[in-house]
Nucleic acid binder design. Structure first.
Length: 267
DNA sequence: ATGGTGGTCCTACCA
């Protein structure tokens, strides 16, 4: 069995200790991180290496965004897409190398941080919202070209289903859950027949949220959204055995506003 | 309709 985790960590330097705790307690084979918020030389490699994660793909930038993959299994970086063409570090893709990868050898793992999209869900007054939709459209074009077993994980910043938010009706005009975002993400799903592993294993109406705002969590209002995802190409999805989200990390000291996801695959 | 919290880097910007 091989397990793959994904977590928007909101500064990997500030929360290296939380990452180490997660790796110690859950022991995934591979961890994908989003929002590392540092450049590649500042990445806390030693904290991972001490726990057996010795293979890396780090695509960072100063202060904002940034993604990384740490792995116990050999990996090889294969791509860094810039789906906004603006230089932001929001993607890194790797290939899993055998024989430690077993049946997953040759699989491609794509780690993505889709733009949040600003406050107003209208591209004429909020360029960030347009950039988010354009990013998704370019991802859709890219997905149509794939010809290998692929897993795409990360912070999608979209909660597609009514049950993916605490109040569907109240969030229809809130960026992350607007109909245009849901439709645009739906076209991405259709472009490659992606299987939403989260809802494959935890179907509606099971509780499944991955993010709680810092601005309301302290009030214990439990206003969550499912913004983080793991989607598998159809051939790969047959190998997924289990999937969960580790909600308790949201209550750790000094938490990220996102919680990690973990999928186990037959290998 | 408003404001609520947090990270980076040092002045706003991003989420």
């Amino acid at each position: 069995m091989i397990s793959i985790a994904s977590w928007n960590i909101n500064s990997v330097r500030l929360r290296a200790g939380l990452v180490a705790r997660f790796l110690t307690e859950e022991a995934p084979d591979i961890l994908c991180l989003q929002e590392i918020k540092c450049q590649e030389p500042q990445f806390p490699y030693a904290a991972f290496e001490a726990l057996g994660y010795t293979h890396f793909a780090v695509h960072g930038q100063k202060g904002y965004h940034g993604v990384a993959i740490a792995s116990r299994i050999p990996i090889r970086e294969v791509a860094r897409h810039d789906w906004q063409a603006n230089g932001e570090a929001r993607h890194v893709g790797v290939e899993l190398l055998g024989p430690q990868a077993g049946a997953l050898a040759g699989m491609v793992l794509e780690n993505v941080y889709i733009p949040a999209g600003g406050d107003a869900p209208d591209r004429t007054i909020n360029p960030k919202f347009g950039q988010k939709l354009d990013f998704l459209e370019r991802m859709t074009q890219w997905a149509g070209t794939l010809d290998r077993p692929t897993l795409i994980v990360g912070d999608f910043n979209v909660a597609p289903l009514p049950e993916d938010v605490y109040d569907h009706k109240a969030l229809l005009k809130v960026v992350s859950h607007t109909p245009i975002e849901v439709e645009t993400l739906g076209r991405f799903a259709d472009a490659h027949g992606w299987v939403d592993l989260g809802r494959k294993h935890l179907p509606v109406p099971e509780r499944y949220w991955s993010w709680w705002s810092y601005r309301t969590f302290w009030q214990e209002k439990d206003r969550g959204r499912r913004l983080d995802h793991m989607w598998a190409s159809p051939d790969l999805s047959a190998q997924s055995l289990s999937h969960r989200f580790v909600e308790e990390t949201r209550r750790w000291e000094g938490p990220s506003d996102h919680v990690p996801l973990i999928t186990e695959f037959a290998s």
